[in-house]
Amino acid sequence: MDALLQPIASLFGPAWPLVWILVKIVGIVLPLILCVAYLTFAERKVIGYMQVRLGPNRVGPKGWLQPIADALKLMFKEIIVPSKSSKALFIIGPIMVMAPALAAWAVIPFYKDWVLANIDAGMLYIMAMTSLGVYGVIIAGWASNSKYAFLGGMRATAQMVSYELAMGFSLVAVLMISASLNLSDIVIGQSKGLFASHGFSIFSWNWLPLLPLFIVYLISGVAETNRAPFDVVEGESEIVAGHMIEYSGMAFALFFLAEYANMILVSALTSIFFLGGWLSPVSFLPNGFFWLALKICFVLFLFLWFRATFPRFRYDQIMRLGWKVFIPLTLVWILFVGVWMMSPWSIWR
């Protein structure tokens, strides 16, 4: 590979590392955007079938070109900036929602050594980046100069800040048992254990010993991305579309795409932290990127399934679940894992 790239590298001279990183970034972001587009299609199809109807089936063969048509439509619509809004912040809002959702992919390992930045503090970086997403919502809500947008932004912010804590605490336990902040090391750590040595690596992944935290992380992930049944942000009946109400055209599309990009990100993180990343569930099948993709698709399907199944939570119920159920649960389980690790029955030596 290096020998192949040598002539191109000499062409760029000292700027080559920068160019090569940019090429890698494009290599991650372009497929990601395509996945986001087709996730919107998958959502409409899956929910369609769950509600015994066909979903989009007019544009292209079996409706496969529907996301392309949607994107074209949104691109050609005018972006209306409300009068008396803060113009600069109004534009920065959607960008601030989208950027962290893409930036977090820098440390996601797709396979052994297939990662853009293999840094030691990978998990911290992920937590820092996902905590930035809330700014887009709060800025958009304030800059729109509309009461509905402001209230929607406030709601969304309170919800995202609350569930971030529960997510962070569940990751603390993952950090404790894998003794590393590096995402690749966390995945490799899941390939060892009693069940893995008998050929069933699936039972050595973190989801089994940390089952309560896995469930807390998954549900908090749904709440963090403002998806149903936690989508009070959009709350059609009360605040119409929350912080996005004043946005149109591509600016609205950015919010929409960021929601799906965040869904894919949370699914990827769940797969890496709890479902063994690129590891194969049984030892007679080879490891590979294929498994990570399959796990991400499985978690994404859960997201769509939740949306088709559950009615929306009431706002006070969301706050109660986050603060009074999840956070105490994670704290107790962290203590339990700590005692377990120090006891003679520890399985992580």
């Binding site: 911290l124 937590m127 820092a128 905590s131 709060i138 800040v161 971030e164």
Partner: peptide, 25 residues
């Protein structure tokens, strides 16, 4: 100082300033 750098973003930018903005707005 990667820990300090990321902790600054995580704690101050991600949590403290969000609540601060809440109050200021």
């Amino acid at each position: 100082a990667e820990f300090l750098a990321i902790a600054l973003v995580l704690v101050y930018v991600g949590a403290v300033m969000v609540l601060f903005l809440f109050v200021v707005m």
